[in-house]
Design a protein around this nucleic acid. Structure first.
Lengths: 222, 222
DNA sequence: CTGGATCCATGATGATACTG
DNA sequence: CAGTATCATCATGGATCCAG
């Protein structure tokens, strides 16, 4: 929402791919969008997820994305926190993120390296995306995930699988709680150590089955 | 296909969006993919389309995309030309380009500026994308476009509209020939000056109607 | 002519430290 | 918590040059 200086790094093509990249093509920009797609976040929430970004670059990107009408800032007076969220226009970048994630899943799969920071939300996104692209199961459902103490909801609306951080855990038929480490072991190795699954047995079994499906996917190219 | 040095500008997230951006997130990279999606091109063909890129940057990007398995090089001995094309993996980036183009069409529309280079292929891409997203007409068809002397084919397969530079103009029911300038006036202003349309009247009329449809789209937000 | 490589200037990004 | 300030480095752009 600012109006500050913007580095005019343009392509000057009459092309809407180029025009989009003028808005979101800078380093880190699309990753900021990625981490706002699931809900509003504070500066430090974003710092956590965007491992390796410097505060200077993050504040610059947030300002540019604000100027571009992609990010909105909620800076209420009398409150410490500043909340960043996507505008409707920003939310329409979801297909871009999905397309990049799909390509990455198909062509850059590898197990996490030891030194590679693993935010549970990123792993969850990959899991949901793998289910969405690889499974034929489309029965509507709603699951609650609690990863490192943060709440996420994975849902199927009958057509697409998605996740967000909207909190209505009561409507969920299964709750999965784990640390990011235990969750990673469940996805990558099938080990349930440290993972708490609660819910009716058939519902829990369905979740297990879907995770088993994508394990086949991710281990094939591994 | 090279094996030369590559600047390791990574994000080191366990995230496939970030992994994809490590391959194609550099400035110009996705525009190189954009301009190879319709067929193989030479270095100078790409220079023409990528207005403003320096030869140094283009050769660097082609090498990096080659190393990433996205671009293939055909450097036959005894022949002057070097042909660049997308690998199957590179072609799978089409959904990324489409998503970016769609977002750009919806959120960054404006008429070309006077100083803005306009390559006919980029305008054609926008036209086809607008037809694909805005029209309900899905009857299979094949049109030939000759823009600035270069051949393109626009086709509907019954489900999606697409274009390429595969040459089978004989199978086309309509041929449209124009300079990029005349083509731009047709799309933006509806003027047929300098545009040659040949084919059976009903087929020509269908093409005109579809171009009229997208004219409504592009002028609404203009 | 095509297909680049080289040199230099500058702007974007990263590392680190610090502050309201 | 939410950033800013300073400095170093790297990537990119602009211009020019060169080999087949």
């Amino acid at each position: 929402m600012g109006s500050a200086s913007r580095n005019v790094r343009t392509y000057d093509h009459f092309c809407f791919v180029a025009r989009s990249l003028e808005k979101v093509g800078d380093r880190w920009s699309l990753l900021v969008v990625r981490d706002l797609l699931s809900g509003r976040r504070r500066f430090t929430d974003l710092m956590d997820r965007l491992g390796g970004i410097t505060p200077k670059t993050l504040s610059m990107r947030l300002r540019e994305l604000g100027d571009a009408g992609i990010v909105a800032v909620d800076r209420a007076s009398g409150r410490r926190e500043v909340w960043y969220s996507l505008t409707p226009s920003g939310r329409e970048l979801a297909p871009v993120i999905e397309a990049l994630g799909n390509w990455g899943l198909r062509h850059t799969w590898r197990r996490p390296r030891a030194d590679e920071p693993l935010h549970p939300e990123h792993l969850l996104r990959a899991v949901v995306q793998a289910i969405d692209t690889e499974s034929t199961d489309r029965r509507p459902v709603r699951w609650a995930f609690v990863l490192d103490g943060e709440d996420y909801v994975v849902a199927c609306d009958g057509e697409r699988w998605s996740y967000s951080s909207d909190f209505d855990e009561d409507a969920a038929v299964v709750t999965l709680a784990a640390t990011h480490d235990a969750f990673a072991r469940l996805i990558l190795d099938g080990s349930s150590d440290g993972v708490t699954l609660t819910g009716q047995p058939p519902a829990v079994e369905r979740l297990r089955a879907l995770i088993g499906t994508i394990r086949d996917v991710v281990t094939v190219t591994s």
